[in-house]
Design a protein around this nucleic acid. Structure first.
Lengths: 260, 260
DNA sequence: TAGTGGTCTAGACCACAAA
DNA sequence: TTGTGGTCTAGACCACTAA
């Protein structure tokens, strides 16, 4: 779609280099096609509201049956990435609500979706022995080494959130040498340590500021904070991060959609 | 397949009075079967962890193809009601996290899932003119009549939440005659006014108690509350309820699961 | 009327679990 | 070996939208 401007009639063929599915892969066809379409959608290959190719076109493109193609579409619909209208077509959905409460997204992405400009200050980055609560969440022994990274998250030049990450140091030795003001933690975990976070469990509470947190966040004391504790897991369901988030109650709101 | 009662060895046929699907209904087969299985699961027709009938058995029972049956199972899986294991079978999932943040469930159901005993005191039930904020949420004119119901929600004899419901009075005339200490509001809406809530949008904040709310909830002032504003919609996407929930921050936590 | 998605079928082969 | 769920196919008919 980008380059490859050829002057013959086969130019459409030339453009399809990657999107071919592999029938001998261990991955099911529907999974391969899903991965491909999802990443294209997330990378804005189509604009919001734009119509996607029809079922028939994609069946031909990928060489699969209609049922398989529909399986992919149904999954994308259920995840809110696309919507379909009988007789009209399939369209890119507005990226909106629900994510952030169902999807793991970074602070940076979260703020951008809200139309705010994110920044980060690293307040601490050190190796510490795991406290009982941290050890419990990460399923390690109390006293085991933990990489502790504390960051102040800023939106439109105003403090928004204090974020404390605890990682089992065994899993990511040397991780503190990276600069987490500029580099997303998840990216470093994925690219440098081959740790991919696929699932997380979180608890959301309301708490009152301590004098310290109030000062850091620049809010009066006492005021209310949204406090989120999150344990993230890799593909083998091993805990890889224990995260504590303290959001300003006066600035930050969680949005989501419920269904019957 | 429905009637046809003959006097012979077909006693199994006699037993299946309700679960027969209607091929002439405007509802698709998969929807009918889904509704049926879902309500059986929610009514604990099977215990947690118990195996459901196999695809083949249900195909025969409902007289549908495998694809249709699988469509139903996939939906139930994606909603977390069941899980499947290749080579073993299909099982009832533990009712757990995620709901309450993705599903609309009542306070009563929420508390029961947490193993607590719920009670309700009605603090107010009156007709009032809609304030701007309420009118805005319900898409009515400021000053229009609104049914206002304020309840104190109790769990294990301790106050847990203050709940303020605002309903357009036009949609539910006479609703205040019901006793909302004993009767779920959603049930009254559905059975008496044919109003079915299918979708809701909510915002979750952290706020500090007022002296009044602190007193009602029996918590020190100031302390933190989880404050949830929810607008609920019927099947035609008409706002039917604006709800404000104030949960004790020290007792109430939202749990949920995130995926990548 | 043509094109789109919605529903449904019958049948095949494979992978995995348990006996 | 048997029974379960997982994947995939080709083909049919219907309902809705837009021209």
């Amino acid at each position: 779609m980008a380059n490859e401007l050829k002057n013959d009639t086969y130019s459409e063929e030339y453009q399809r280099i990657l999107p071919v599915v592999n029938r001998h892969s261990r991955l099911p066809l529907h999974q391969q096609i899903y991965d491909l379409l999802r990443s294209k959608i997330l990378n804005s290959a189509w604009a919001v509201g734009e119509m996607l190719p029809t079922e028939l076109e994609l069946m031909v493109e990928f060489g699969v049956s209609r049922v398989t193609m529909r399986q992919v579409f149904e999954r994308l619909v259920s995840e809110g990435l696309i919507y379909r209208q009988q007789g009209r077509g399939t369209f890119i959905a507005k990226p909106t609500l629900e994510q952030g409460l169902t999807r793991i997204i970074s602070f940076t992405e979260d703020m951008r979706r809200r139309g705010l400009i994110p920044e980060t200050n690293v307040l601490a980055a050190e190796i510490t022995p795991a406290a009982d609560e941290v050890a419990d969440a990460l399923k390690i022994k109390p006293g085991d080494n933990v990489a502790f990274i504390k960051r102040l998250r800023i939106a439109n030049a105003e403090p928004m959130c204090i974020e404390e990450s605890h990682l089992p140091y065994k899993l990511c030795p040397g991780i503190l040498k990276f600069d987490f003001a500029s580099q997303p933690l998840r990216e470093v975990l994925e690219k440098r340590y081959a740790i991919r976070i696929v699932r997380a469990l979180q608890k959301t509470h309301a708490v009152v500021t301590t004098t310290k947190t109030a000062k850091l966040l620049g809010v009066p004391h006492p005021s209310a904070l949204l406090f989120i504790e999150r344990v993230s897991f890799n593909e083998w369901d091993l805990p890889v991060e224990f995260l504590c988030l303290y959001f300003r109650g006066d600035r930050y709101t969680l949005h989501n959609e419920l269904r019957d």
